[in-house]
């Protein structure tokens, strides 16, 4: 595994994956870890906010839209944009198409490939794709 550097440091990029479908969350999280990212897994939006509000370090949030609870992925993204504007958000959904105006983040359609998500994360953070181990 080749860690993805963050701002020239040795620390890998930390991605918070927010997805209520456990098997999908595991799949994309494993792929991102294989690519060298540090992945934190949240099963719903409130959990993601709890993690960030507690001081958990996150460089980017990758969130599904349709989730149980009071907050969906779009609300989460808007909340992050308002409270943590330095944390970029990538939003994914199988049902939103095309993405509505004012999307509070970058959008990727489900089903997505891990390669597509990795490329989006690296592009969003201005990282060099050649530094990952993902084939």
């Amino acid at each position: 595994m080749v860690p993805v550097p963050l701002d020239g440091a040795d620390n890998p990029v930390r991605v918070l994956v927010v997805e209520d479908e456990a098997l999908i969350r595991l799949l994309i999280s494993d792929e991102l870890r294989e690519a060298g990212f540090t992945v934190i897994e949240a099963s719903h939006a409130e959990e993601a906010l709890t993690y960030i509000a507690s001081g958990g370090a996150v460089d980017l949030v990758f969130t599904d839209v349709m989730m149980p609870g009071a907050m969906d992925g779009l609300s989460l993204a808007r909340q992050l944009l308002a409270s943590y504007p330095s944390i970029p958000v990538i939003i994914t959904s199988a049902t939103l198409r095309p993405p509505p105006d004012g999307m509070p983040g970058i959008f990727v359609q489900k089903p997505y490939s891990a390669d597509r998500v990795i490329a989006l994360i690296l592009a969003t953070l201005g990282r060099d794709p050649s530094r990952t181990s993902h084939e």
Binding site: R33, I40, E41, S43, S54
Partner: peptide
């Protein structure tokens, strides 16, 4: 998540 995440990271 504040318990699960750090524990999982440690075990990894």
């Amino acid at each position: 998540i504040l318990i699960r995440g750090p524990l999982a990271a440690f075990l990894r």
